[in-house]
Amino acid sequence: MAKGTRLSGATLLVTGGGRGLGRRLALGAAARGSRVVIWDVDAERGAAVRDEIRAAGGAADSQAVDVTDNQSVKAAAELAGPVDIVVNNAGVVSGRRLLEAAEQDIERTMQVNVLSLYWVTRAFLGGMVSRRRGTVVTIASAAALVGVARQTDYSASKFAAFGFDESLRAELRAAHTPVNTLVVCPYYIDTGMFDGVRTRWPRLLPILHEEQVASRVLDAVEAGRRKLLLPPVVNLLPVLRILPVGVFDRVMDVLGVNQTMDHFTGRAAGRTGGNTGVAHPLTEGTRDPMTD
């Protein structure tokens, strides 16, 4: 196992840090002694988390950043200074079938969930490599392991996020650089983004809690883990892909993975941005039910 990155005394940057899993990661890292830099497209939301950390005696800064804009990312990175742990957490999801999703929503999903990984990581990776320490965390999803119905663009983007982490890890290993990567693939998390979603086998595939996932991610960073799949049964999902297609489809039906969205009754009231797929889909933090 790779050597982990201690949170105490480290600087951790989290994108989409104004709410959801991003907020929990920021609070948890600060409680473990990190200086936290919060990036969120919403300045007020990021500042609120910053102030929450400072009120508890922690060290935190916040910046309003659109992580899909490379120039904005570069400018914000200059202000943030050296970072030891980058958590690529910002994500969006429309929850719509391919023929129902608006073209701008599909494009935005790819910009936020894939392209931002390159811009944010590139902004800090050089410093990590030169200091020969650090961790790049990519919050992917269980949808990175198997395609999910009614989330075609989202699933494809998370497959790409998983590939980004895997390729980056290979690149760093080939260069004999002791910088860690960690990919996180959780099942649904109770962020409230989707109303009415429930799983067929709640004991096998339970809805996860933000605090629980954040704590596990931070533990994994310190332990030097390379992959974190939650709950543990999710580790079996990629194995299913070696089955014949017909058998694979049947198993997915039995598990009810594709049927979870059939219970979707609507987006939470008052959320008309971020990854809601309606109105103005900006990088509004972590309202992604599978990744925060």
Rank of each mutant, 00 (worst) to 15 (best):
R198W: 07
R198S: 09
T199K: 11
R200V: 08
R200D: 00
R200H: 11
P202L: 05
R203Y: 06
L204A: 04
L205N: 03
L205A: 00
I207S: 08
I207Y: 07
L208S: 07
E210P: 03
E210T: 09
E210V: 13
E211I: 07
E211H: 04
Q212Y: 15
Q212F: 14
V213H: 05
V213C: 09
V213M: 06
A214W: 15
A214R: 13
S215G: 14
V217G: 11
V217A: 14
L218M: 09
L218Q: 13
D219Q: 14
D219W: 08
D219I: 01
A220K: 12
A220M: 06
V221C: 02
V221P: 03
E222N: 10
A223H: 12
G224L: 07
G224I: 05
G224F: 03
R225E: 10
R225P: 03
R225Y: 12
R226I: 11
R226C: 06
R226G: 06
R226D: 13
R226S: 09
K227A: 15
K227C: 15
L228E: 01
L228C: 13
L228F: 01
L229G: 01
P231M: 03
P231W: 02
P232D: 02
P232F: 05
P232E: 01
V233S: 06
V233A: 07
V233C: 01
V234R: 00
V234Q: 05
V234Y: 08
N235A: 06
N235M: 02
L236Y: 04
L236P: 13
L237M: 06
L237E: 04
P238H: 08
P238L: 14
V239L: 07
V239H: 08
I242G: 10
V245S: 10
G246S: 11
V247Q: 11
D249T: 02
D249W: 11
R250M: 15
R250F: 15
V251I: 09
M252A: 06
M252T: 05
D253Q: 06
D253M: 00
V254Q: 01
V254H: 03
L255K: 00
G256W: 07
V257I: 13
V257R: 10
N258V: 09
Q259V: 02
T260W: 05
D262T: 13
H263I: 02
F264S: 04
F264Y: 13
